[in-house]
């Protein structure tokens, strides 16, 4: 996973629970990177899962809520790092298409070692968009969170749910975004 995700997770945790909490997380996690993250580096996915796991344990929240919250929070951060064209999109659906067709593509160009999720759009009406979330990392809750963050950015209100989810024993994760 790219360093930006770790750096932002660090900021997210410190913002919520303070530097000391982050310090103890690192102390407990015993990561091979020692928590020294830079946005230009790439780090083991497991470190992120370990850190999230520890937050979940210590703050007594569900993994889903943790991922969701981080996703929702991180969107604006990702947008800052996004290629200039990303700011032109004023609609959630439009933006989601652009992520698949353009934004993640640009990300991949800059970071050839990035592993980005694949979205397969299944259906679309003016108010409802469904798409398949495909990634070996299974960060579908994180994805839900990002979509919420995105809606905040565009000033729209959406409901995000999964009609199918691998965490619920389904064979795939289908996201449904409804404008309300």
């Amino acid at each position: 996973m790219k360093g930006i995700v770790f750096v932002k997770f660090n900021e997210f945790v410190e913002e919520l629970w303070g530097e000391e909490f982050w310090d103890t997380l690192l102390d407990e996690a015993q990561l091979s990177s020692e928590g020294i993250y830079t946005t230009v580096g790439t780090y083991d996915d497991e470190e992120l899962f370990t850190l999230i796991g520890l937050v979940v344990e210590q703050k007594n929240i569900s993994p889903k809520d943790a991922q969701f919250a981080f996703g929702k929070w991180v969107f604006k951060e990702l947008l800052n790092a996004a290629p200039a064209g990303a700011h032109n999109f004023k609609d959630v659906f439009e933006f989601l298409h652009a992520v698949q067709d353009f934004i993640h593509v640009e990300v991949k160009k800059l970071n050839p070692d990035a592993l980005l999720p694949e979205f397969e759009f299944l259906s679309e009406t003016p108010n409802t968009l469904t798409f398949l979330y495909q990634s070996p990392r299974n960060l579908c809750y994180f994805c839900e969170g990002i979509v919420h963050g995105l809606a905040e950015h565009t000033g729209q209100t959406v409901e995000v749910s999964q009609t199918e989810c691998q965490h619920q024993g389904d064979s795939r994760c289908v996201m449904e975004v409804v404008k309300v």
Partner: peptide, 23 residues
């Protein structure tokens, strides 16, 4: 405790910078 947390943080930042510079 606070100082040592911040010191460790500063150290991590420093190392991170070094890493970034190396990168």
């Amino acid at each position: 405790k606070r100082v040592s947390v911040l010191e460790r943080k500063a150290l991590r930042e420093k190392k991170a910078r070094q890493l970034a510079e190396n990168q």
